[in-house]
Design a binder for these strands. Structure first.
Length: 944
RNA sequence: GCCCCCGUAGCCCAACCGGCAGAGGCAGGCCCCUUAAAAGGGUUCGAGUGCGGGUUCGAAUCCCGCCGGGGGCACCA
């Protein structure tokens, strides 16, 4: 038996000429696709007229057009949004739906490096291929609105938006981005600090330090194997590149950053206003990592005796009385200056790392810590560290506590320093245990037995002459101690975020060039709009300089830097013609996807990235829903973009909103994660993948290929796993409608499921049966009759109509399909010709799922116009209520009998009927029921 | 280690606010059509809902604890 594909190509020479098979389906599909295109059936006006139906903006996460084309897993979401769009259109809504391409990216560039083919050539060929593959699926897209991020006319506006961000700063008072000119004006007016006395260059540096897109010399993720730097989001938990799986090193390099951290608070808070899956919201919250706490300053003295403060961040200021030591990250700037010349008298041997002086101990430790990769740190959670030789003063009790250096404290989070409270923090407990440090409990653990107690409880051991926390719960204690610290000037309430600024430059060719040049002072200058677009120049070698994957000490060298002719630009930027050097980094792949939802709305606008009125119409907040942030009405895509694309796009959208370019506050009002189509793959004894379609299931269980046993695994569909099935094959063997119906019937949209070619035939059979019920397979004439359907048929019809509405709206296409099959089965079983009214309703209900065959049947039924805008059937309530209802009668929860009563019977009547039933009476055995529950329309339960 | 999601028939999946466990498809059995075959027609079989408790008149559904699978985060103070 063939497991994954049915390779038999039956030559049905005897099949009737008008049987709905692959050949007829294909002919119908081509014809209707041509007609939809010719007539512009799915063109949506950017500014619909006053009598247009309520607007709906549907979007799919646009694909990267890879060289291998689509497999059957890719279009699952695309078909899903298409079904909904078609359904909504038939219900009078004005639907905007199109498809674009996220076409900058690594594979085209790597292919270019190997073959010398320009990435644009490869990319455009791939896009053409994708468009053909998508067209044959019959997706109702407005093809005039399609964009690709690599189109010069598209990335011109990506660059324009970059300049908006570059020319803006975040005003923490107003909690929004403002034009940089307003900041400059405030400085010039002397309201923000020194200005007039600064040189022009110094003034520019001050301003540049506030921009939302800025240059920073900071530790970044340098990936020598790829020859580029990467964003935090592109680095996996074990310190490797998401693409290519190369080691990633922390290096201090000069790079472009985006100040996404300015928006941390709003990015978290506005999640509450979005209709998104909880899992994605949780991932974003987690990634942003908002935590509330306090900064506390501990007085200390440097090695030379000068006074200094160590600032720590803590989420548990309530445990301050239990802070028995402090820890600085190895990279902390205070470490060197704190270290005294000698170990203090009586220093514990465990604390010195075996060194004769603190300076040597610290130096050794820092060296060792620097050699460790993130992975080493993760794998080995043994606490290590050395004493700096310095002490700090706990502000609550004046006690001197030792200051350590340890790599379990990270420079990148909080202040890079902690107060250690072993009683309430397991990491601190572990360290304290290893180094023999005192442990003071400040939260009463009750009868809990264990090490650090992180739960809630009354504070203990937490009082001095001015304040006592004893007896307070954690929350109240936090508030009390924070107020006390603030009053004494020893601390502040502070909110911390894990989110880091977004590293925005890449050393690659195939990306958007920055609209930035560098002047003679070595400072960046944003180009004026008139200089846009900055087009990618032709170059000989597309590859960045890559290195041995482990060569951490190498430098990035972008490909664009090698075209000196392009790099040097003579421009007049207001101060007369001068020579500038162009920025040679390019933007990351995420740039285009941050705003393509805006360009779809107004793709041909040459004056603006999107017309404000058009944006307001399609994305504006819904005034009838309080708190609605606006955005795309439904955005469908995979969950893998939860913290990359979806976070970046929200950030850009908010900046553009702040600057007054948009009326909506969020890009995607509702998000839906579709499941994946996965597939079985098979390996032979050597572990090599064998073609999945040739594998057969052995009678005794197990699987064989060429009579050799093979092992089955389950996962992705991919070339290397030899288990790819393409939509092209499916369209050829069954037709697009069958393929669409199959994908939609196998489960609800959000569920992942295995591909099974063997099962596709079920969908084909259904369409064939519908066709046969309406069309004579021998003559092609319709078989419907102009008689009134009988009551049973009307009931079946209206039940289907009512159910299908609910299902389509809820994206439960599998159950919608089941109801249509059920209705058709009813028509088949009735054995008589199908009444026209029923046939037409069935065809209209099928149209969202299987549009081509529905159009064909609709036209054969005598309707010359497309059914794309035909009214969707409406259920007649009269046929939804039955005359009689059969009630199951439970006795103590077990069904013992059934009675049939009038549908409008009162509960008392139902009760009487139930008690009158013989079997119930028998089950009662003469006893009186203790309780009797009648659930109207459902059942009766008698309790004895 | 923490957080999120999911376990229903051989397989994919239904089951509304807790109310008769089954809508649909695949596979299987049987019958019909057929010289034969199936991507034909018909019919039929099939689980007590991962396991153990609890709440309830009543639990696939709610609660608790396990087991299994998937995903995210991870020395984040």
């Amino acid at each position: 038996m063939d497991m994954s594909t049915d390779t038999s190509t039956a030559v049905d020479t005897d099949a009737p000429p008008f049987r709905y098979g692959a050949a007829l389906a294909t002919e119908i599909e081509r014809r209707w696709q041509d007609r939809w295109e010719r007539e512009g059936t799915f063109h949506t006006p950017s500014r619909p007229g006053p009598d247009a139906g309520e607007k709906v903006y549907l979007m799919d996460m646009f694909p990267y057009p890879s060289g291998s084309g689509l497999h059957v897993g890719h279009p699952l979401g695309f078909i899903g949004t298409d079904v909904l769009g078609r359904y909504l259109r038939m219900n009078g809504r004005t639907v905007l739906h199109t498809m674009g391409f996220d076409s900058f990216g690594l594979p085209a560039e790597q292919y270019a490096v190997q073959t010398g083919t320009h990435p644009r050539t490869t990319t455009e060929a791939n896009i053409r291929r994708y468009k053909e593959q998508l067209r044959q699926l019959g997706l109702a897209h407005d093809d005039r609105r399609s964009v690709a991020t690599t189109d010069v006319e598209f990335y011109r506006w990506t660059q324009w938006i970059f300049l908006q961000i570059y020319n803006a700063w975040y005003d923490p008072e107003q909690q929004r981005a403002r034009p940089i000119a307003e900041l400059e004006a405030e400085y010039a007016a002397g309201r923000r600090g020194p200005w007039a006395e600064l040189s022009r260059v110094e003034q520019r540096q001050v301003i540049d330090g506030h921009r939302l897109a800025y240059i920073s010399e900071a530790p970044v993720n340098w990936c020598p194997g790829l020859g580029t730097v990467l964003a935090n989001e592109e680095v996996t938990a074990d310190g490797r590149s998401e693409r290519g799986n190369f080691p990633v090193f922390r290096r201090s390099l000069k790079q472009w950053m985006m100040r996404i951290t300015a928006y941390s608070d709003r990015l978290v808070a506005d999640l509450d206003r979005l209709d998104w899956p909880d899992s994605v919201k949780a991932m974003q919250r987690n990634w942003i990592g908002r935590s509330e706490g306090a900064v506390v300053r501990f007085a200390t003295a440097t090695g030379s005796g000068a006074l200094a403060d160590i600032e720590v961040f803590t989420t548990r200021p309530d445990t301050l009385f239990g802070a028995t030591y402090m820890v600085l990250a190895p990279e902390h700037p205070l470490v060197s200056s704190l270290t005294p010349l000698e170990w203090p008298e009586g220093t514990d041997e465990r604390w010195t790392g075996g060194s004769s002086t603190p300076a040597l101990a610290v130096e050794d430790y820092r060296f060792e810590a620097g050699r460790k990769t993130d992975l080493d740190r993760q794998e080995n959670k043994q606490k290590t560290g050395v004493f700096t030789g310095a002490y700090a003063v706990n502000p609550v009790n004046g006690r001197e506590i030792p200051v350590f250096v340890a790599d379990y404290v990270l420079m990148g989070y909080g202040t890079g320093a902690i107060m250690a409270v072993p009683g309430q923090d397991q990491r601190d407990w572990d360290f304290a245990a290893a180094f023999g440090l005192p442990i003071v409990r400040t939260v009463d653990p009750g009868d809990w037995e264990g090490e650090a107690f992180t739960g809630d409880g009354p504070a203990i051991n937490s009082a001095n002459e001015e304040i006592s926390l004893d007896g307070l719960g954690v929350t109240e204690a936090k508030r009390a101690i924070t107020d006390w610290l603030v009053a004494r000037g020893d601390g502040e309430a502070v909110t911390q975020y894990k989110l880091r600024d977004w590293l925005f430059s890449r050393q690659r060719y195939w990306g958007e060039p920055f609209p930035i040049v560098w002047d003679a002072d070595g400072l960046p200058v944003g180009l004026p709009d008139s200089e846009l677009p900055v087009e990618l120049p032709e170059i000989d070698d597309y590859s960045p300089k890559t290195y041995d994957a482990d060569a951490a000490d190498t430098e990035p060298e972008p490909p664009l830097s090698r075209n000196e002719e392009w790099v040097v630009a003579e421009l007049d930027l207001g101060d007369g013609t001068a020579s500038y050097r162009r920025e040679t980094n390019t933007m990351p792949q995420w740039a285009g996807s941050c705003w393509y939802h805006l360009r779809y709305l107004d793709p041909d606008n040459t004056e603006r990235f999107v017309d404000p009125d058009i944006e307001k119409y399609w994305l504006g907040a819904d005034p009838s829903k309080p708190g609605d942030p606006g955005g795309v009405d439904l955005y469908v895509g995979g969950v893998e973009h939860a913290v990359l694309h979806l976070l970046y796009a929200r950030f850009w959208h908010k900046v553009l909103y702040d600057l007054g370019h948009l009326s909506s506050e969020e890009p995607f009002r509702r998000l839906f994660n579709q499941g994946y189509i996965q597939a079985f793959a098979y390996t032979d004894a050597r572990g090599t993948y064998v073609p999945a379609e040739e594998v057969v299931e052995a009678a005794e269980g197990g699987f064989t290929w060429n009579n050799e046993p093979v092992r089955r695994e389950y996962g992705k569909m991919g070339k290397s796993l030899k288990n790819v099935v393409t939509p092209d094959e499916m369209c050829e063997r069954y037709g697009a409608d069958t393929f669409r119906l199959y994908e939609m019937s196998t489960g609800p949209m959000d569920v992942s499921r295995p591909w099974s070619t063997r099962d596709v035939v079920g969908s084909q059979r259904f369409l064939q049966r519908v066709w046969r019920n309406l069309v004579d397979e021998h003559t092609g004439e319709t078989r419907v009759v102009d008689t009134e359907p009988d009551v049973d048929t009307l009931r079946a019809l209206h039940k289907a109509i009512a159910g299908v509405h609910t299902d389509y709206r809820a994206l439960h296409y599998n159950t919608a399909a089941a109801k249509l099959i059920e209705l058709n089965n009813h028509l088949t079983r009735s054995g008589t010709a199908v009444p026209r009214s029923v046939a037409e309703a069935l065809v209209l209900m099928m149209a969202p799922l299987t549009p081509h065959v529905a159009e064909e049947l609709w036209s054969r039924l005598g309707h010359p116009e497309t059914l794309a805008y035909a009214p969707f059937p409406v259920a007649d309530e009269r046929y939804l209520v039955a005359d009689t209802v059969e009630y199951p009668i439970q006795v103590n929860g077990k069904v013992r009998s059934r009675v049939t009563v009038a549908a409008d019977a009162t509960p008392a009547e139902v009760e009487a009927a139930a008690l009158a039933d013989e079997k119930v009476a028998a089950a009662l055995g003469g006893k009186d029921p203790r309780k009797l529950i009648v659930v109207p329309g459902r059942l009766v339960n008698v309790v004895v």
